[in-house]
Simulated assay, not measured.
Amino acid sequence: MAAPLGPVRRALRAGVLALVLAGAAVVVPDAAVHRTDLVLVQADRADGVAVRDQDVLWVLAVGSDARPGESMVRSRGDAIQLVGINTRTGSAVAIGVPRDSWVPIPGHGHGRVNSALTYGGPALMGRTVGDLVGVQPDYVFVTRFPFFEDMVDDIGGIHVRNPRAFSDENLKPLGFTAGRVRLDGYGAMAFSRIRKTLPGGDFDRSANQQRVLRGIQQAVRARADEPGFVERGVLTVMEHMHTDLPPGELFRLGQALAQIDPAKVTTCVVGGSIGTVGSASIVRPFVSQARRYGAAARSDASLRGC
C-alpha cells in the first residue's frame, strides 16, 4: 500500500525549504529585479561518481565576504562547512574549516583556504576544501551574509546553545550570554563571525557557525507545517538563486535534507596551530586530523567524536 500523501508531502516541502535555507536563503519583499544572493552548483568531481547512486551527498557551504558591487563568487569565503548527508540513515555531519587555514590551492601555490573562492570561484573552493579533508563535495553553496541575516529574521529568529559568554566591541558590544540564547538576523551574523575575543579564535568561530546552522534547522522544522511558510520561502529563494542543477537534482537534495534526523547530526572543526606568513596571521591546519574526519565520515556521514 502506498504511504499516506500528507506525511510525504510535508517531508518533501520541508526538505525543499531546508535545502535553500541551509544555503542561507530568505523571504524578502518582491521586487521587479532580484539580485543573485545564493549560488548552488554541482562540483566537478574527479572520480566521476554519479551523485544519484550515492548514499552520502557532500555539500560545501560557504559565506561570501563580497562587499556591495563585488562578485559573491569571486570574493573571499567565510563560514566554510563541508556537510555530509546520508540519504539512507538520516545521519549528517558538518566538518568546519577555519577560513585562515593555510593550504595548497590548485594552480595557485599556497594560500588561505578562503582565497580559493577569489581565485577560481565555487569550483576551486570545492576542490581546495576537498583536497584538505579528503572528500570532494558533490555540490557547492555560496551565499551573501546580508541575505543570511534577513532569512533568520524572516523565520522568526533562532536559538543556540552558547558554551561561553563573549562580546565584540564592533559587532556586538553587549555580547552574548552563556546558555540558551535567542538570535535575530544580525545577532546570528555576529555570533557566526566574531573570533578575536574567543579563546579558540578561528576554531571557536567555526564551531559557532555550526551552532547557528543547527538553530536554523530547528526553527525551520518547527514552522514547516504552517500554511504558506514553505511556499513563500521556496518562491523567493528561486528568485534569488542561480544554479546549474536540473530540477531532479534539486528535488533529490530537498529529499535528503528532509530525512536528516537531528539526533544523528555530528559537528567537528578541523584543528590547527597559529602561525604567520610574512605579516599575515594564519592557521596551519592539522591535515592528518582533517583526513581522519573525512575518512571516518565518507561512507556514512557520521563521526564518533572529534
Results as ranks from 00 to 15, higher is better:
Gly107Ser: 00
Val49Pro: 03
Val73Tyr: 04
Asn170Met: 11
Pro173Phe: 09
Thr118Phe: 06
Thr36Asn: 10
Asp138Ile: 07
Arg10Val: 08
Asp37Tyr: 13
Pro104Thr: 09
Ala301Trp: 00
Gly157Tyr: 00
Gln217Ile: 12
Asp225Pro: 01
Ala219His: 07
His110Arg: 13
Arg180Cys: 11
Leu198Tyr: 11
Phe191Val: 11
His108Leu: 02
Gln210Asn: 04
Glu169Gln: 11
Phe229Gly: 01
Gly90Ala: 08
Ser281Pro: 00
Lys172Val: 13
Asp154Trp: 12
Arg52Ser: 11
Ala61Tyr: 04
Trp58Cys: 00
Glu226Ala: 06
Asp300Thr: 11
Leu132Met: 09
Ala280Glu: 15
Val133Ser: 02
Glu249Leu: 12
Ala61Asn: 08
Leu253Phe: 13
Val234Lys: 08
Val93Asp: 00
Phe147Gly: 14
Ala222Pro: 15
Asp131Tyr: 12
Gly120Glu: 14
Ala46Leu: 10
Ala50Lys: 14
Leu38Gln: 08
Leu19Thr: 15
Arg74Leu: 10
Phe166Trp: 00
Ala25Gln: 15
Val73Arg: 03
Arg232Val: 03
Arg164Asn: 07
Ile85Asp: 01
Gln209Gly: 14
Thr177Ile: 05
Ile80Asp: 09
Val152Leu: 00
Ile80Arg: 05
Ala207Tyr: 04
Pro163Trp: 04
His240Phe: 07
Ala297Gln: 06
Pro98Cys: 06
Gln136Thr: 15
Arg211Val: 05
Leu183His: 09
His240Trp: 06
Met125Glu: 04
Asn170His: 07
Arg182Thr: 10
Thr89Gly: 01
Phe286Val: 06
Arg232Glu: 11
Leu5Met: 13
Gln255Glu: 09
Ser302Phe: 07
Pro285Ala: 02
Val220Glu: 09
Leu174Ser: 06
Asp37Phe: 10
Asp225Lys: 02
Ala61Gln: 05
Leu17Pro: 03
Arg45Trp: 01
Gly109Pro: 03
Cys268Lys: 09
Gly271Tyr: 02
Asp202Trp: 00
Pro122Ala: 10
Ala280Tyr: 15
Thr128Val: 03
Thr143Ile: 04
Glu226Ile: 08
Gly111Met: 13
Gly175Ser: 04
Ala25Lys: 05
Leu12Trp: 06
Arg76Thr: 02
Trp58Ile: 00
Arg298Thr: 05
Val237Trp: 09
Ala50Ser: 14
Met238Leu: 09
Asp55Asn: 04
Ser64Val: 07
Phe147Arg: 09
Val269Ile: 02
Val142Ser: 12
Val234Pro: 01
Tyr139Ile: 13
Arg205Glu: 01
Asp261Glu: 05
Ser75Asp: 04
Leu213Gln: 10
Val49Leu: 14
Val152Ala: 14
Tyr186His: 09
Ala22Glu: 13
Val28Phe: 08
Gly157Cys: 01
Gly77Thr: 09
Val33Ser: 10
Thr87Leu: 12
Asn162Tyr: 05
Arg232Phe: 02
